[in-house]
């Protein structure tokens, strides 16, 4: 599904990623853990194609296509979804209007018919229940005045609606209390299947109790320094990131 080879990237002329190699197969859930400044968020932004993140070496292939050649919206339509750590607020644009436009952009790229307002309403209601989201959040402006938990639920709601092939969750657990964490994780787990892949980026092991990964990678200094099964997350929690840094 996603093949990252010897990826180098820089921000403001400073090298952040220094040779990442990572293969995520269809249906696999990988977690990336690492201390602050290790390059976790840079990796998610590079995958999504954010301006200002310059790839200086290596390649990223998504379903056999060169991902780095695509504009951000094309990556999104091809099935890469980034659940943001800090979702943007857009005043005056209602959440449902935005989600419908987004869903229809993705659908028409897939060659599917666009949904009208009624069809959209029906589908979105069902998905909203899944993330326990109150109705009024749909008619409010995107993320404006949403609590931290509501913003993250909104991200997962979008993921449920768009049904991407590859979900990248960037510190989705940050700022969530335990109840919100459970709801968000249940939403994500509902999307797990044999064809959909996920890359879960997190600082803490906590999220991985709910979303159990197939593989855990530890990122440090812009490189993957250790890879293991889900037990690696527990080991990290116990020993701290200092343990990895000391042993590499």
């Amino acid at each position: 599904m996603l093949e990252i080879k010897n990826l180098f990237a820089q921000v403001d002329d400073k090298e952040i990623l220094s040779g990442i190699d990572l293969n995520i197969g269809a249906g696999e859930v990988h977690a990336i853990m690492g201390p602050n400044g290790s390059g976790k968020s840079t990796l998610s932004n590079v995958l999504a194609g954010r301006a200002g993140y310059e790839v200086t070496g290596g390649s990223v292939t998504f379903e056999g296509k060169n991902l780095l050649d695509m504009d951000p919206e094309i990556r999104a339509r091809e099935g890469i979804f980034l659940a943001f750590q800090y979702p943007a607020e857009i005043p005056g644009v209602s959440n449902d209007y935005f989600l419908k436009a987004s869903l229809n952009a993705v659908r028409s790229h897939r060659g599917e018919s666009e949904l009208d307002a009624m069809d959209f309403l029906e589908i979105s209601r069902e998905k909203m229940k899944q993330v326990e989201m109150p109705d009024d959040l749909m008619s409010r402006a995107i993320n404006e005045g949403f609590s931290g938990g509501e913003k993250k639920r909104n991200e997962v709601l979008q993921m449920l609606l768009l049904e991407p092939k590859m979900c990248v969750l960037d510190e989705t657990d940050s700022g969530l209390d335990i109840d919100a964490l459970r709801v968000v994780a249940e939403g994500v787990n509902a999307l797990r299947n044999e064809s959909r892949s996920m890359l879960v980026i997190t600082h803490y092991q906590r999220l991985l109790e709910y979303i159990v990964p197939d593989k855990v990678h530890v990122l440090s200094g812009g490189r993957i320094v250790r890879t293991g099964g889900s037990e690696l997350a527990l080991e990290l929690e116990e020993k701290g990131y200092g343990w990895i840094e000391a042993s590499t």
């Binding site: 954010r50 301006a51 943007a88 857009i90 005056g92 987004s102 952009a105």
Partner: peptide, 28 residues
């Protein structure tokens, strides 16, 4: 903001459609 623009594009909207949506929101 670059944040708003990238957010819209990451949800599949073209750059022009994103700007148009943000501007219309501003004028609502």
């Amino acid at each position: 903001s670059e944040d708003q623009l990238f957010y819209c594009q990451q949800r599949g909207l073209s750059e022009e459609d994103s700007i148009s949506m943000i501007v219309n929101g501003f004028c609502k």
